[in-house]
Write a protein that binds this DNA or RNA. Sequence first.
DNA 1: CGCCATCTTGACAATAGTCAAGTCGGGTGG
DNA 2: CCACCCGACTTGACTATTGTCAAGATGGCG
Lengths: 258, 258
Amino acid sequence: MTNLFIKKLELRAQLSDRDRRALEQATAKVVQVDAHRDLISQGDAPEHAFIVLDGFACRYKLLPDGGRSIVAYLIPGDGCDLHASILNQMVHSIGTLTPCRVAAIPYRTIKALAAYHPNIYQALWWSVLVDEAILQEWLVGVGRRSADKQVAHFLCEMMVRLEVVGIIQGNSYNLPITQSELADTAGISHVHVNRVLQNLRHAGLIDQKWRKLHIPDIRALKDFAGFAPDYLHLRPNISREGFIEPLTDIAKAQLGEP
Amino acid sequence: MTNLFIKKLELRAQLSDRDRRALEQATAKVVQVDAHRDLISQGDAPEHAFIVLDGFACRYKLLPDGGRSIVAYLIPGDGCDLHASILNQMVHSIGTLTPCRVAAIPYRTIKALAAYHPNIYQALWWSVLVDEAILQEWLVGVGRRSADKQVAHFLCEMMVRLEVVGIIQGNSYNLPITQSELADTAGISHVHVNRVLQNLRHAGLIDQKWRKLHIPDIRALKDFAGFAPDYLHLRPNISREGFIEPLTDIAKAQLGEP
DNA sequence: CGCCATCTTGACAATAGTCAAGTCGGGTGG
DNA sequence: CCACCCGACTTGACTATTGTCAAGATGGCG
């Protein structure tokens, strides 16, 4: 079974065998985590970053009124807060939504990967930028889209993201989250989520059974949601110049410095 | 007159004289831009990153329905999309809100700064992470806070950010944006923005004259908004380990590689 | 002086939140 | 094997926040 984290990075930069070996070694330490456990809690200053190899997790914030706001989803292959060691402390938590297999990587290993492997470095940057782009798209959605389009948009996004890592069956995928969690994601009440989902079902845009979502007509759902996947930056960009020079260049340049 | 970009980075990492000189040189090419001009437009694949040295700018998205959603503000000292060269194309625009003095920096210069100056590298990372944290906080706000608290929260955030770069007068600051722009920021209609601002004024929480905002009681406004500035990560974190090792360590380690 | 963008106001409509009750279904323990 | 329990989902009635439309006031600037 191939490592989805590596698979995903490979879409974003050309990895050498050496890169791949380093990544495999870094993600070798895998732990199994139950559903609804925190990997990182608000206020922590953790020593490890996490990569979700299997299962769903989310980044969320706890609100003063006891509520919760989900600001990102981590699907298999996603890393979280890989560079968080720069900051003092987490202002959000990472929690599992389902049982997960996660790899824990010490920050210094990530640091080393980034420093010695320019391709990995570029791929990690890509991930961060895409995360930010998703956040922006969500912000737009919550602010401007009606609840039904907002939910439809989210379902489209998840479908595309899951497709990238290949955990999708035709037009169907597992979305193992409750309506309350969806409500905390879209910023609407769980009652309203329920009504919205019913509308989408009655309109024939989606088809739900348990936690399995089937989309009869993807085009129709995307059109309804106004979904344009550019912000996910899926098209690989390997041709453009890498961000960092090979180490040899750096070393060479530094030799010329005082 | 000191360069606010450098001043801001200095809060986030200890810069050497050499670092400072490199930054000054990089930001030497300054251009004056009128208000309401795009620095970068959606769909571009720009060659330069921009740093706002003076004036206000914003990152925004154009919506299919012709609307606009503002997803970030750039105040003096802020850079934008410093690493965007990793991605294919911009999915948002950067536009000035007021006349601005901006420095245009070729991506390869940024690349070089990051590669040869570990401290600058760390400071740039910090900026990116803080940007992301702000985006998250906004997402939470738009989703869960009522319109008045949302606006109040924004006013608190701007005050703190402007305070950091020292462009604030006591409890007052210039907020050179229209109510429509504030509406596009908070994701509410401009009519409602107007009502909300009046409420805040009548409650004695703010005091507006032209584009000058005065906050009689900061504590009161922060309490009303539920504003907690942790997410801005203002406390310098210089004591924690830098992200990247000094080059000598890298080189040493690489010698041990196959 | 007059234009234009900005701000303000009121009436009305619509979307979404809240409360409260009830249904469904899987898992657990007797 | 059955009864119960609990979390998740559903429903309806009512409320309230916010959006829309349309018109008018204000004020800087040419």
